[in-house]
């Protein structure tokens, strides 16, 4: 642990991310106001003691909604990375182990997905399946599959060439056992680093989809949706456009720094190269 916290990027990233996670955790049991409770008399109020981040066009407390929106963002990050990781690892390991046709198929599948404009396809998927947070996560997660598949393949190929794999084979360990006990633990570091990066990208992507009205649906709070609503009232209530965006930037900055810190600590070669 000392090794991680000795790294400035990791420490700052950890602190920023911790604020988001704590805010999200607290919002599950308490928020200053009910995040969805409307109040006609408190419409478009500026930041004050009772509403530190102001209120929106329905009189809802922005702080409460930003806190609730953090839960959404964390869920989106976790689920999309889980989709990409679970399928990507299987595909990458299969490509590295079987090679030839399987490898070629996995690589061409990745090329195909990379060839599609990600935002556009995500919009297409969410429009087809219906706008919702679950469909948004699915649309983002699909694009993570080739990212993790390629990474797994690239790292696993080098691991398969190592001597301890030959030793394990000579010792009679099954191929599945080698994959599970020897290859997988040795490729976890780069996957963890990539996972943090994709987590941050997912938050940005979901915010974009929600801004377009294709992600989290009202009345549930979502940072992207809040920004969309803010644009209409920008001249009367500029704070509405500031705080949700700040929350997105804060969360993404924290996770990016955390990822950088992890890379610095877990992948010493990168530090030497930088």
């Amino acid at each position: 642990m000392k090794r991680f916290f000795g790294n400035l990027n990791f420490s700052v990233g950890f602190a920023l991310s911790a604020v988001v996670i704590i805010a999200a955790g607290i919002s599950l049991i308490w928020t200053p106001f009910d995040a969805n409770k409307m109040s006609a008399v408190e419409r478009l109020q500026g930041p004050s003691w009772s509403h530190p981040l102001g209120t929106d066009q329905y009189g809802r407390d922005t702080l409460s909604r930003v806190m609730t929106g953090a839960v959404n963002s964390i869920i989106v990050g976790l689920v999309t990375v889980a989709i990409g990781l679970s399928i990507g690892i299987v595909m990458g390991l299969a490509a590295s182990y079987y090679g030839r046709f399987v490898d070629e198929a996995v690589m061409r599948f990745s090329d195909l997905l990379f060839g599609f404009p990600a935002v556009l396809t995500a919009i297409l998927i969410t429009s087809t399946l219906g706008p919702s947070m679950i469909n948004a996560m699915l649309a983002i997660g699909i694009f993570y599959i080739p990212v993790f598949a390629r990474l797994t393949r690239a790292v696993a190929i080098t691991v398969y060439e190592r001597e301890f794999i030959t030793a394990a084979r000579a010792g009679g360990v099954s191929e599945l056992g080698i994959m599970w006990r020897h290859v997988l633990p040795n490729i976890l570091s780069p996957l963890l680093i990539q996972g943090t990066i994709q987590f941050a990208v997912a938050i940005l992507a979901e915010a974009g989809l929600s801004y377009l009205g294709l992600g989290t649906q009202p009345p549930a709070a979502s940072w992207g949706r809040m920004l969309n609503e803010a644009q209409t009232f920008m001249s009367r209530a500029p704070w509405m456009a500031v705080f949700p965006g700040l929350a997105i930037a804060w969360a993404v900055l924290g996770i990016n720094l955390l990822g950088d810190g992890l890379r610095d600590t877990l992948d010493p070669k990168m530090v030497r190269a930088r």
């Binding site: 915010a207 801004y211 992207g224 920004l227 920008m234 456009a241 997105i248 993404v252």
Partner: peptide, 22 residues
């Protein structure tokens, strides 16, 4: 650059409207 990477481009767009247009 870290700040730039963390900023959603549409939010930056909204902020620019807020500052330079509104």
């Amino acid at each position: 650059t870290q700040l730039g990477l963390a900023t959603p481009e549409f939010w930056l767009g909204i902020l620019l409207i807020l500052l330079l247009s509104v």
